[in-house]
Nucleic acid binder design. Structure first.
Lengths: 143, 143
DNA sequence: ATAATACCTACCAAATAGGTAGGATTAAAA
DNA sequence: TTTTAATCCTACCTATTTGGTAGGTATTAT
């Protein structure tokens, strides 16, 4: 399960993508419209900015905007940023790799093979899910 | 990421599957061989028994054995038992379903569609991963 | 009887999740 | 130049979950 933080982040980014014309948008507006606790969302945007997924404009009439096009931001980036590794097992991740303690031969481990299979499929789906792709899915009700 | 509890459970079940001929097997033996804390593993087996995934024999020379064939037990059952829902979002699960608070039209939600896609693929992989299948993957090094 | 096992109840410490509080800094507008 | 509205920063907080431990009771083969 995704954490609330990740869910909030995704919702906020989709909101930014949907209002790409009127940016920058203040956090307060997103917090209100999407019913997300303001201070919590502020800290989320702080992390999104550090990760260069959004950029900010300070002061009055400031706010956040997407850093890059809606095609450049996908859910794999966001999930990794807030929830860490995507795989079910540390031995099946690329970025957060750790071997299992009692694994004699990792390349022969059946459990790991399942985990790798699932990880590959999940990452592929999450990478395909760019903000543009999510918006397109919402238009296209025939699914 | 799977919890340690789930990982321990999977490892213990694979151990039982691998030694299907010499059952029942005491928890102490699995704990020792797989380096799992004994008391913790005991509580895991208690849950596995409640879920009728294993069966027990009390007293001296007792222990646990698989309840059913190695084809009947798959990772979806085990993961659901210990970690709960498999999907990334509550609105994309069958058993643990909950709507999103701010979702106006769930059937049109792009994020949910991604989550459903991933869930379906993940559940399919986990169901395919029976204990028999895992053992087969370990034999078959050519993957 | 004894040894070895499952089973049961209670407790516990550390980490994580999900926030809140209070302000300092910046920049546009009046 | 003051006001307003925004980001940014530091610190704190509480509840839940995770990953165990402790200490025993009941059961069964030898």
């Amino acid at each position: 399960m995704l954490s609330k933080k990740t869910k909030y982040a995704i919702n906020a980014l989709v909101y930014l993508a949907r209002h790409a014309d009127e940016q920058p948008i203040p956090v307060s507006r997103i917090a209100e419209e999407r019913k997300i606790p303001l201070k919590f969302l502020e800290s989320i945007f702080s992390e999104l900015k550090n990760a260069r997924i959004v950029k900010s404009k300070k002061g009055k009439y400031g706010g956040y905007s997407l850093n890059g096009g809606t095609d450049d931001i996908d859910l794999a980036q966001v999930v990794r940023l807030f929830d860490g590794a995507i795989a079910l097992l540390p031995c099946a991740t690329h970025d957060y790799y750790e071997p299992c303690e009692e694994c004699l031969d990792e390349t022969a481990c059946g459990i790991r093979k399942v985990a790798l299979e699932i990880r590959n499929a999940t990452v592929a789906s999450l990478k395909e899910a760019t903000l543009a792709n999510i918006l397109a899915r919402e238009q296209n009700l025939t699914r």
